[in-house]
């Protein structure tokens, strides 16, 4: 069966100006229980790659530069 891509508004937002992933920081990526945050190859910053969020907050709480905001997923809001 052929596969289509579909759009999804994701709950975790990373402020690229504050993110220091390019300096070697991977805190948010490390602490995510669902492994949905990855480095964006284009920018060197963290981003939410998969819309599989438990909005549990360690990524936001543990971020050293307050770059991460966890919103409630749209379906629950």
């Amino acid at each position: 069966m052929p596969i289509a891509n579909h759009h999804s508004s994701v709950p975790v937002i990373v402020d690229e100006d504050k993110c220091i992933a390019d300096k070697g920081c991977t805190v948010c990526i490390d602490v995510c229980p669902l492994d949905v945050l990855w480095i964006n190859e284009a920018t060197g910053k963290a981003h939410m790659k998969y819309d599989e969020c438990w909005y549990c907050m360690p990524c936001e709480a543990d971020c050293p530069t307050d770059a991460v905001t966890v919103n409630i997923p749209y379906l629950l809001r």
């Binding site: 490390d30 602490v31 995510c32 229980p33 492994d35 549990c56 360690p58 709480a61 543990d62």
Partner: peptide, 12 residues
Amino acid sequence: KANVKRSGAISM
């Protein structure tokens, strides 16, 4: 499966 630092039912 995740990272011991923040895994499981009591991650927070």
